[in-house]
Structure formats: C-alpha cells, structure tokens
C-alpha cells in the first residue's frame, strides 16, 4: 500500500521533471531573444553615433565652428547655426521653465479635484502627444502672422517652449508628488502660508526632479527640427544676430530676438538634402555634435535622477 503510493509519486515526478525541462527551454529561448534585442538596440545607438563621428571626422576642427555656411563644403561651418540654437534655447528656457513649474505647482498644490483641474490635466497629457509639426503650424499661424512676430529667434524660442512645456509640467508634478504630506504639515504648523510652503519647501525639495525634466526638455528642443522649419527658419544664414551683451551701457539688448536665424538640426537637414557627398560630411559632423549634446544632456538628467533616488529617503 505504502509502496504503491511511493511508486505513483515517483512516476509522477519523472513526468513533472521532463515537463519542466521542456518548459524551461521556452524560458531560455525568450531570455535569449530579449537579451539579443536589447544588445542590438544598444549597438544601434553606438553605430549611429560612431557612423556620424567617422563620416564627419574631416570637419572636426575649429574652423567648422567659426565659419559661416558656404557654397564650398570644405569651407562651410556651423557658426550661425550653433549661435542660433543657443539663442533660441535661451528664449525657450525663460518661457517654458517658469510657466511649466507654475502650472505643475498649481495642479499639485492648489487645484481642487474637480472637472476644471481634470480638464487642465487632460490637456497637458494630450499636448504631450500632439505631433511636433502641429506646434510648428500653430506658431506659423499665431506667432508669425497672428502676432506679427515674424520668422525670428523669439518665435522659434516660443514654439519650442510650447513643446517643452508638457515635459516640465509632468516632471514638476512627479517630483512634487514624491514629497510626503508631513513635510508640508511641518511647514504649515509653524505658520507658513500656502505660497510660502510651496516656495520654501515644495519647490525646493523637488528641485532635482524639476531640473531633470528641464534638461530632458532642453535636449529635446536642441534636436527638434520640424516645427522650426515650419515657422520658416532660414536654411542659409551668413550673418550673426546682434549680440545680446554689449560693451556699452545698457550692456544687454534684445534686438537679437527679432533677428532671422538658423539652428543646428536645420543646418544638418539642409546639408543632407544636397546631392553632393561633400556636404554629407558636413551633415555628419553637425549630427555628431547634436547627438553628443543631447546624449550628454540626457545622461546628465539620468545621473541627477539617480542621485536623487539614492540620496533622498523621506
């Protein structure tokens, strides 16, 4: 009787073991496929970067940074493009960051849960999903012609700010949400007003998270091409906008806001579109610079976020 049962169990065990071996094979196959895909993606990123670096290698010299675009590929440079990119980003930064943080603080700290705050939330989510070229059309219709700002650095900066806004809002909200309620209570308990709590505590403690969002948003703005083309940025610019800082009082001027411009990705696009291979070298060199900038910025953002996660334990 006992032996019967033992035999039955052992019989069953043999069956189970062969079954497990079979099933485990699926595990191993899937793990292999998954690993393969991930390694391929990583290699793709690497190939992408190295391809640009190798193709663009002949242009890696100081002249490339200090020359204007030219009809001769070897003499052409990206001076007007990188200056344009930098100036546009300044506008973008000052437009998107305060507005994005304010909206994020409003939604997390002030808004009551009602249909209106829901509406704002749905809008923010949807805006993040609108194709970037649509923002270009919005800017073309509204900023360029509606407000008469023209095809200027100001217009481009504001356009990219619209694109960056949802990123900053979402990052701000996530960072704020991570702050536990008892921190706020401690601040209220010493008599702080709502705004004081927000300014002195909430915004300051979520600083790292917000910064991460801002950097990622700026990195995206550097590489964003379609909306800037749509507002009618020029592709061939052989002059610089007026300098924002001068040697004579008042030292700072804002004429540059109204200047025509080009940006790095447009310059790259322009060169890719030429049939001559020599210009493709320029495009690759520009691409290498753009990708380096975005990788560095995104890497920095990831690093900051990692540090926050490690450091802060509420």
């Amino acid at each position: 009787m006992v032996n019967d049962k033992k035999a039955e169990i052992e019989n069953n065990l043999t069956r189970i073991r062969s079954l497990i071996t079979k099933h485990k094979r699926h595990d191993h196959i899937f793990a292999g496929v998954g690993m393969f895909i991930i390694i391929s993606l990583t290699i793709t990123l690497l190939v992408l970067f190295l391809d640009l670096v190798f193709d663009g290698y002949p242009r890696f010299n100081l002249d490339f940074l200090t020359n204007f675009p030219s009809r001769r590929a070897t003499a052409a440079g990206i001076l007007s493009a990188w200056v344009g990119s930098a100036l546009v980003l300044i506008v973008t930064f000052f437009a998107a960051v305060p507005l994005g943080i304010a909206a994020g603080v409003y939604l997390e700290e002030y808004a009551k849960k009602n249909w209106f705050s829901d509406l704002i939330e749905i809008n923010v989510t949807n805006l993040a999903g609108v194709p970037s070229i649509i923002y270009g059309l919005l800017a073309l219709g509204l900023f360029v012609y509606g407000f008469g700002l023209g095809q200027t650095i100001l217009t481009a900066g504001l356009t990219l700010a619209l694109l960056m806004l949802p990123i900053v809002i979402v990052a701000t909200r996530e960072a704020i949400r991570a702050i536990p309620i008892h921190i706020r209570e401690a601040a209220y308990a010493v008599g702080a007003t709502k705004w004081q709590v927000s300014l002195h505590h909430v915004i300051q403690y979520s600083y790292g998270g917000i910064l991460t969002g801002v950097i990622i948003g700026m990195a995206r703005a550097i590489g964003e091409t379609a909306p800037v083309i749509t507002i009618g940025a020029l592709t061939f610019i052989a002059f610089l906008p007026p300098s924002p800082v001068g040697l004579e009082p008042p030292f700072i001027n804002f004429e540059w806001l109204e200047a025509g411009f080009t940006v790095l990705p447009i310059q790259m696009f322009n060169w890719i579109s030429r049939p001559q291979m020599a210009f493709h070298v320029n495009a690759a060199a520009t691409g290498a610079i753009i990708i380096l900038l975005t990788l560095l910025m995104n890497g920095l953002a990831i690093k900051i976020r990692y540090n926050i996660r490690k450091k802060i334990k509420w």
Partner: peptide, 23 residues
C-alpha cells in the same frame, strides 16, 4: 538597460533621418 533606452529616446529625429538615408 533603462538609461540606455532613455538615451535612445533622446536621439533627435534628424539624426535618425541621416541614419535611414545613409546607412
């Protein structure tokens, strides 16, 4: 792996365009 994926998300599309055409 997750940071690598995030870096890939950050690559500007104009660069991907070059990649498609030239490679």
């Amino acid at each position: 792996i997750k940071p690598v994926l995030e870096l890939l998300v950050g690559v500007p599309t104009v660069v991907f365009g070059y990649f498609a055409l030239m490679l």
